[in-house]
């Protein structure tokens, strides 16, 4: 439900004229709610930025989310990030 609520709140903020980006970990909910922009990771609930104290991993997800804020030009785009859960070699992509 968290992913659904994120999208609902996001839509209201965007309606106020403030650009928004969200991190999704349940793609179906995000597809249904249609927030303006999102990045998706197939990661476990409760871990949108990764694992505790893995600063590098968290920083990469944050960076990719902020990049998407600028790059996404088509409303409703959900960008799939290429990072599999605990496959640290993916973070070099």
């Amino acid at each position: 439900m968290c992913n659904r609520s994120v999208g609902l709140i996001q839509r209201e903020i965007e309606k106020y004229g403030i650009p928004t980006i969200s991190i999704s970990i349940v793609r179906k909910f995000t597809e249904e709610i249609k927030p303006p922009r999102a990045v998706f990771l197939k990661w476990p609930l409760g871990h949108p930025l990764g694992e505790p104290f893995n600063i590098k991993q968290q920083a990469i997800v944050l960076k990719k989310a902020l990049e998407a804020l600028t790059d996404i030009k088509e409303p409703g785009t959900i960008r799939d990030l290429p990072y599999r859960w605990r496959r640290y070699e993916d973070l070099e992509k």
Partner: peptide, 20 residues
């Protein structure tokens, strides 16, 4: 959610990151 949007605007926020 609208109340929060107003508070964000009042702070001069340019963009918001939302996380589940």
């Amino acid at each position: 959610a609208q109340e929060v949007a107003e508070k964000l605007r009042a702070q001069g926020v340019d963009a918001v990151l939302l996380t589940p």
